[in-house]
Simulated assay, not measured.
Amino acid sequence: MSTSSETEARAAAVPRPPARGTRLTLRAAALGRPDAPAVTGVDLDVAPGEILTVVGPSGCGKSTLLRTLAGLLPPLAGAVEQDGRPVDGPAADRALVFQDDALLPWRTLRANVELPLAFRGVPRAARREQAAAWLERVGLAAQAGQLPHRVSGGQRQRAQLARALAGRPRAVLMDEPFGALDAQTRAGMQELLVEVLHGTGATVVFVTHDVDEALFLGDRVALLGAGRLTAVRDVPRPRDRSAHDDPARVALRRDVLTSLGT
């Protein structure tokens, strides 16, 4: 006969329905630090389940925007909201993914992926099972027991992605997560991100310097520059590699590069 703890563990291991995405809104927002505002007058609405990419030159406030949405920086003015409620600090349903993988070096990949599940109170057996399933999904089943320094940079980023999504966040905020990877690994990570996000319903804000990456991943692309949000444009045929030479995509790419002064 099963014990109550075994029953609880099995129940927790059963995949739950996809998390519903969340709406992220900035209204007349000024972002940055009191002595160094980075962006002012930001009006932006990110729809539930949307992938919004953000591009702009170095120092234009992209990371500041992301950290404000994550609740790590309060706005200097205006409003920053999640589903109509003020963002007044970090929250478990908004996951932040950095360029630096930020894995705990003394924990195995599996133990790193278990962290958000432990914070949610998932029983140990169930969180091990769920972490293993996420690592398999990102192609790291064979490396589950390895420490981060024993695997490649691309594999560490896969583990970080698994850790972010294991907690079933409603928003995933990504700060140039693939920027340090070589071109081939980066393209593979873009495809993997699209694959693992499918069905989660999560809202994604993805900061990048790479215009082609922004136009592949994003439903819309937001352009930052000169201390303000200059435009938000719809992307034709997002997440379609064959659309690279689509005339509408080519025209948008040209416009984005012009706006960035490149």
Results as ranks from 00 to 15, higher is better:
Glu191Phe: 00
Gly84Thr: 05
Gln184His: 14
Val250Leu: 14
Leu103Lys: 03
Glu6Ile: 11
Gln99Ile: 08
Phe178Met: 01
Leu115Phe: 14
Leu72Ile: 03
Arg233Val: 08
Leu69Val: 01
Asp83Asn: 13
Ala187Ser: 13
Ser5Leu: 08
Val194Thr: 15
Val39His: 07
Arg94Ile: 01
Gly225Cys: 11
Asp245Gln: 13
Asp240Gln: 13
Gly167Leu: 00
Ala13Tyr: 08
Val207His: 08
Gln99Gly: 03
Ser259Asp: 10
Leu161Ser: 07
Thr200Phe: 02
Ala95Asn: 01
Leu140Asn: 10
Ala171Pro: 01
Glu176His: 02
His244Val: 14
Gly56Ser: 06
Asp182Trp: 00
Pro238Val: 11
Ala29Leu: 09
Asp182Gln: 02
Thr203Met: 11
Asp93Ser: 02
Glu81Val: 00
Phe216Ser: 02
Glu8Asn: 11
Arg27Val: 14
Arg128Ser: 14
Glu195Ser: 15
Arg237Ala: 15
Leu173Ile: 01
Met189Ile: 07
Val194Met: 09
Glu129Arg: 12
Val232Phe: 06
Glu176Cys: 02
Leu66Tyr: 06
Thr208Arg: 11
Leu96Asp: 07
Ala79Val: 09
Val42Arg: 03
Thr200Glu: 06
Pro48Val: 06
Gly199Ala: 08
Gly201Tyr: 03
Arg150Pro: 08
Ala166Lys: 13
Leu65Ala: 05
Glu176Phe: 03
Thr200Gly: 02
Leu165His: 04
Thr40Met: 00
Cys60His: 04
Val138His: 02
Pro15Met: 04
Pro86Gly: 04
Gly41Cys: 08
Gln146Ile: 02
His209Met: 05
Trp134Arg: 00
Arg254Asn: 09
Arg168Gln: 12
Leu65Gln: 05
Ala226Lys: 05
Thr203Trp: 14
Arg241Tyr: 05
Leu96Ser: 06
